[in-house]
Nucleic acid binder design. Structure first.
Lengths: 148, 148
DNA sequence: CAGTATCCTCGAGGATACTG
DNA sequence: CAGTATCCTCGAGGATACTG
């Protein structure tokens, strides 16, 4: 199974992975969420190959995760911005940060805080109906007939 | 930068990626969360190479994400179970599922429901102090001096 | 069943120079 | 600045047979 074949499998994990599962993709998105929009800025910070970055940006743009926006003319220059589909990857990024903070870093390299109160936000798995947190033991999984 | 070098960078996204960022790792974990614990069962469902699966299981075990448990003797047979460190990857898996359900699947291939009420749980980013949901616009990021 | 051994392919990524 | 062109390396993953 090639990487691209993940997109065609009936599993939401695999489909998402077909978009973000390559080595550099989530780190490129990390830069976008951090406010970097320029090719050279991202390339220098991450230190990845220019052709790899160019390829990832084209892929993410054609996926609708980023949009390429002209920010000046003569000469024309473009930058990349997160679309709503791209912004919606934020919980995924936070999940990566939280796990790394908890299990792989002594001191968190970056701290998020709620502007209003200064406290640290966290991802919670909740039942919107019961209005309480749930653990995976309290969940049932139902698979469609053609699910992978 | 090789894949393994991500572990040594001072960024929690990169460190987590050094554990879960290869092509098959999250899909292997999906099988574990689904209750599959046996080598052959995982290998047949996913269809990945046996040597790749063996390598991933060794890596995840040495990372402390899985533990290898003997479940019978003569002949000795082993299976794999999620440790607390592995269980803590569940929000990450849910984030992948939610994004795929929302943006890449017409009908969700698998539905999670709260056993107590039957409703669908969701990941929410919350401030535990203010006891309310927050968006990324309401957050501030503070980087350590040596953060990547 | 849970792997190991062996061999092979191919494409992801790196490096560097160049261009409008 | 935002890429493209070119060439190259190497290791991740596939396939198949074998083993305690």
């Amino acid at each position: 199974m090639r990487h691209d074949d993940l997109a065609d499998v009936n599993c939401s994990v695999a489909k998402t992975w077909s978009v973000v599962g390559e080595r550099w993709t989530m780190l490129v998105l990390r830069e976008l969420f951090r406010g970097q929009r320029r090719f050279d800025a991202i390339q220098e910070t991450l230190g990845l190959g220019r052709s790899v970055l160019a390829d990832r940006l084209v892929m993410l743009t054609s996926e609708g995760v980023l949009e390429r926006v002209q920010y000046q003319d003569s000469p024309a220059r473009h930058e990349y911005r997160l679309t709503p589909k791209g912004e919606d990857l934020y919980p995924l990024l936070v999940a990566l940060i939280e796990w790394g903070d908890r299990w792989k870093s002594e001191t968190p390299p970056m701290a998020l805080s709620h502007r209003a109160c200064g406290h640290r936000p966290e991802l919670q798995l909740r039942c919107p109906h019961c209005e309480e947190q749930v653990t995976r033991r309290e969940l049932r999984a139902t698979f469609a007939a053609d699910a992978w």
